[in-house]
Every structure is written in structure tokens, then in C-alpha cells.
């Protein structure tokens, strides 16, 4: 019996280690291929280069020499779209969370939460389709009406739709944070003659700010790593611009573009995707770790 139990415990440990092995696998895979990339392409020209044009490198006779792998335009494009999406999702998500948690009756809450859950359950490919076939043409026509030129694949369209995708995410994380604030603080503020809004804005939101901030960080990490919306609605060509009406490209779009055909593992084009993956992983990991750390400490502080 004891042997069987021991064997079973071994199986449990093995299963648990899968999660660790996965992380190690991810880090090792992208690190190894990235190092191979950086042995061909100078890291400083990657991280500080302002021109992204990997196509040239496929010419056989100058495989290592040519092709421009400047990361900056991709980073700027990614951050631009992320910022647009946060500009939509943070105020809207927060307003919904505050309304549901502090103002709405439980009946209203019961009616509205399913809507948010539906929005949260829609795959991003569907949002991407909507951005591509519905929102982009609308924005272009609207721009034409107003006399502004909006690119067919604009940062704005991708950012707006991504913002919509993030609303339920931010709303639900913020609501959790607001929920964690003890009622004694609400009563304290109300007891001093605050209106509901004053109690919320001056006491409850400040008290839940760490949780809300963590939610926003997690949302940014999601926006940065989101792929399908930008693949369908943002551009492929890398323009270094912060004009939301122009087409920009993102880190994830370029990973997809570089890897969609046949992949040769000695081609800097293929390897560049892993260098991009490494940057993406590092960026989102930092955001996630900070956010999850805040969430954990914040939860403890009210327990």
C-alpha cells in the first residue's frame, strides 16, 4: 500500500512540475533562438533600430548582412494601440465597476453582469473580424466626411475594438478590488454626511486603488500580447508614428507575419520572430508579476 501511495504522490508531483517545465520550455525556446538571432544581428541595432524591414534578408547571398530589424517602430505601434485601448477601457470599465459595486441594485447587477460575461467570452478573432469588416470602413467613411484621411487599417480601429474587449476585463478586476474594501469604511464616510459619490470617489476608490492599478497593469499586458485583433485590423508595414489615424504594426503582428510561411531556422527572419517573442514575453512578464504581487498584498491588507 505504502508503495502505491508513494507512486501516486510521485505522479502528483510530476503533474505539478508540468507547469514549471512549460515555463522553462518557453524561456529556453525563445532564449536559444533569440541568441542565435543576436549572433547574426547586432542586439543594439535590434533594440534601438528605427527601421523594420525584414524582407530584404531573404536574399541568399547576404543572409546575415542585410535586412533591417529595428524594434522601435513595432514597440511604438504596440504601445500606441495599447494606449488607445486603455483610454477606452479604463474609464468605461471603471465607471461600470463603480456603478455596479456602489450604486446599482442587486437586480440591475444581476442583469448587467451576464452582458459583461458574454463580452468577455467572445474570442478575439471575432473582435478582429468586427474591426476589419465593420469598424474600419465606418472610421474611414467618417474620416472622409470630416475631411481627415483615416488609413484602412488604422491604429484607432484596432485600439477601439481592443478597448471594447478589455472593458469586461477591467470592470471585473476593479469590481473585485472595490468589493474587497470593508463596509466599515463605506459607513464611516456615509456617517460623516458624504453623498454616495463622495464616499466612493474620496474613500472607496482611493482605498481600492492598488487593486484597480493591478487590474490596469494586467489589462495592458493583455493588450500588448493580443494578436488577432491587431493582425486583422492593424497594418503590416512598420511606420514609426504616433498618429492613431495611420496604420501601425505591432510586435505580435510581426511575429505572425514572419512565421506564417515556411520557416527556416537558420534564417534571421524566422529567428527575429523569437527575438520579438522574447521582448514580448519579458514586457508582459514584468507587468504580470508586478500586478499579481500588488493583488496578493492588497488582498492580505484587508483580510
Amino acid at each position: 500500500m505504502a508503495i502505491r501511495e508513494r507512486a501516486l504522490l510521485g505522479v502528483l508531483i510530476l503533474a505539478t512540475s508540468m507547469a514549471v517545465v512549460t515555463t522553462i520550455g518557453i524561456v529556453a525556446a525563445i532564449l536559444v533562438e533569440s541568441l542565435r538571432f543576436f549572433s547574426i544581428i547586432d542586439p543594439s541595432s535590434f533594440f534601438f533600430g528605427t527601421l523594420w524591414s525584414p524582407q530584404i534578408a531573404i536574399r541568399e547571398d547576404q543572409a546575415g548582412a542585410a535586412g533591417s530589424f529595428g524594434f522601435i517602430p513595432l514597440l511604438v505601434g504596440t504601445l500606441l494601440i495599447t494606449l488607445i485601448s486603455l483610454a477606452v477601457a479604463v474609464p468605461m470599465g471603471l465607471a461600470i465597476a463603480v456603478y455596479l459595486s456602489e450604486f446599482a441594485s442587486s437586480r440591475t447587477r444581476g442583469q448587467i453582469k451576464p452582458i459583461l460575461e458574454i463580452l468577455a467570452g467572445i474570442p478575439t478573432i471575432v473582435y478582429g473580424f468586427f474591426a476589419l469588416v465593420t469598424l474600419s470602413p465606418i472610421l474611414r467613411d467618417l474620416g472622409a466626411e470630416l475631411g481627415v484621411e483615416v488609413a484602412g487599417e488604422s491604429a484607432l480601429a484596432a485600439g477601439l475594438v481592443m478597448g471594447m474587449m478589455l472593458i469586461p476585463f477591467i470592470a471585473s478586476l476593479s469590481e473585485d478590488a472595490l468589493f474587497a474594501v470593508p463596509d466599515s469604511l463605506r459607513h464611516g464616510a456615509i456617517g460623516l454626511g458624504s453623498t454616495q459619490l463622495e464616499a466612493t470617489a474620496r474613500v472607496i476608490i482611493p482605498a481600492s486603488l492598488p487593486g484597480i492599478a493591478a487590474g490596469i497593469l494586467l489589462a495592458s499586458s493583455r493588450a500588448i500580447g493580443e494578436t488577432m485583433i491587431v493582425v486583422m485590423a492593424a497594418g503590416i508595414a512598420a511606420h514609426l508614428t504616433i498618429n492613431p489615424l495611420e496604420a501601425v504594426t505591432t510586435v505580435t503582428v510581426q511575429i505572425v507575419t514572419l512565421l506564417i510561411g515556411d520557416q527556416e531556422f537558420d534564417d534571421p527572419k524566422t529567428l527575429a520572430a523569437f527575438a520579438l517573442g522574447l521582448s514580448l514575453f519579458a514586457l508582459t512578464l514584468v507587468l504580470n508579476i508586478i500586478a499579481l504581487h500588488i493583488v496578493k498584498r492588497y488582498r492580505q491588507s484587508y483580510e
Binding site: 520550455g25 499586458s221 500580447g225 494578436t227 505580435t252 504580470n288 499579481l292
Partner: peptide
């Protein structure tokens, strides 16, 4: 291990594609 699992849940899905390409396929 716990931090690792929580973070893994938040890793962008495209990274898993890179893992599959480099490790499973290649």
C-alpha cells in the same frame, strides 16, 4: 510554483505558439 502558475495563465497566447514551433515541431 504558485507565482509561476498565475503568471503562466497571463502569458500571451502567441508565446505558446513560439514554444510549439521551436520545441514540439523543430
Amino acid at each position: 510554483v504558485e507565482i509561476n502558475i498565475n503568471n503562466l495563465a497571463a502569458v500571451p497566447s502567441i508565446i505558446f505558439g513560439l514554444l510549439g514551433l521551436a520545441v514540439f515541431i523543430n
